[in-house]
Nucleic acid binder design. Sequence first.
DNA 1: ACCTGAACACCGTTCAAGT
DNA 2: ACCTGAACACCGTTCAAGT
Lengths: 227, 227
Amino acid sequence: MPDRPNPRAERRQEALSRDRIVATAVELLDADGEQGLTFRALATRLSTGAGAIYWHVANKDELLTAATDAMFVPILDVRRINASPPAKIRTIGLSVFDAMDAHPWIGPQLSRTSWQTSMLELIGQQLQLAGVPAPAQFTAASTLVSFILGASSQNAVNASVRAASGTRSRSDSLGAVADRWARLDPDEYPFVHQIAGAIGEHDDREQFLAGVDLLLTGIGLLGQPTP
Amino acid sequence: MPDRPNPRAERRQEALSRDRIVATAVELLDADGEQGLTFRALATRLSTGAGAIYWHVANKDELLTAATDAMFVPILDVRRINASPPAKIRTIGLSVFDAMDAHPWIGPQLSRTSWQTSMLELIGQQLQLAGVPAPAQFTAASTLVSFILGASSQNAVNASVRAASGTRSRSDSLGAVADRWARLDPDEYPFVHQIAGAIGEHDDREQFLAGVDLLLTGIGLLGQPTP
DNA sequence: ACCTGAACACCGTTCAAGT
DNA sequence: ACCTGAACACCGTTCAAGT
C-alpha cells in the first residue's frame, strides 16, 4: 500500500472541485474585475495546472455564468422574510443593489443568468398579493425588474470607476460626482449645475430606494410622493 | 517633382484618420460585438498595419470610449423637437432604446461616457418645465435616467442573445420568451407561467414606453394608469 | 478518474525602421 | 508626420503524457 496523505491535511490541499473553482473565480473577480479572472491566475491560486480546470469547467464562459449565478442564489432567500408586498419589493431591490455594489463585475454578466425570470416571479407574486389588477401586473413587474437590475448595475459600475480613479476626497459616494457637476458650465448644464449643491446629503442607496418608491407610486401601491 | 496621386483616388484609399478608425470600429462592433473589435481586424479592413492605428488612438480603451460616444451624439438632437415635457421625455427614452437595440455592444460600455450627465440634464430641464417641485426634481430625473439606460441596455443584450441562439420560430420579440415561460414549472413559477400566455401581443418597445409612463405617473406628470 | 505542463493560435501593445 | 511589420508578453484552449 502506498503512502496515504493524512486526512487532516485536506485543509492544506483540498481536492479540486467545481465549487472550489467557482469560489476562487469570484475572489479574483472581486479583486480585479473581469480582467482579473484568468485561467493561469486561477491555476496558481489553486496550486494546479491551467489545464486541470478544464476537467471541471467547460470554458471561461461557463465559469463566468456559474460565478454570476452563485452571486444571486443568496438573494432568493428574501422569500422567507415577512412583510407587506411593497416592503418586500423594497427589500428585494435593496439586496440586489447591495450584491451588485459588492461585486461590480456582475453588471455586464446579467444576461447570462435566468435570474431576471426568477426576479420577475418574486415581484409578480407580490403585486398579485397587493391586488394590482391582472392586466397591469406584467408591465408593472417587468418595469420594476428593469429598474432594479439597471439602476443597481449602473450604480455598481460608476462606484467602482470612481473608486479606481482614486477620488477619495469625499469618500466614494455621490459627493465626488457633485463636485464634478458643480464645475460644469452653467449655460450648457443649467439643471445639473444647479442640482449639484443640493445632493450633498444624498446617498446612492436612498436614491435607489426613492426610485423604487416612485415606481410603486405609479403602480398605485403608494400614496402621492410630495403631498 | 515626384508623381502625385490623382485627387480622385481618395475614395479608393482615403487617408487614415481617427474618425475613419472609429467608424470602422463601430462596424466591427455592430457585426460581431466586443470580441469582434480587434486591432488586427481593424488594420485589415483599413488596409494598413496594426501599429498604424496607435498613431491616431492611444489604445483599445480609448477606441471603445470614442465608439460609444459616437453612438450617443445623434441622440442629443432630440433637443430640437417640439413637444410637451412628458412627450419629449418619452422621445428621449425611445431614441436611447432604439440606439442600444441597434448597437447592443453599448450596454457594458455605458460607464465610459459622460453621457449619463447629458441625459440627466436633458430630462431635468423637462421636469422643471413641467413644474415638478424642486426638491423632487433630482430623484425624478435620476430615476428616469437609470430606468431608460438600464432597461434599454438589458433589452438590447437579451435581444442579441436571443438572436444569436437562433430562435427564429416567432421572430426575436417577446414571443420566444413567452414560449420558454409557458414551459416553466407552474408550482415554482406561478406568476411567470400564468403571464406567459398574456404577453403574446406585447412588444419590447411598447413595454419600455409603458415603464416610462409608470414613472411619469409616479412623478405626477400623468394621470392614473388604469382608471 | 483526474491532473500536468508544453504547445498552439490569437490578442494588445511597442518600437526600430522606413517614407 | 505618418506608416510598416516584426517582436514581446499574455491569454484561452487543447492534448499527449502521466498518476
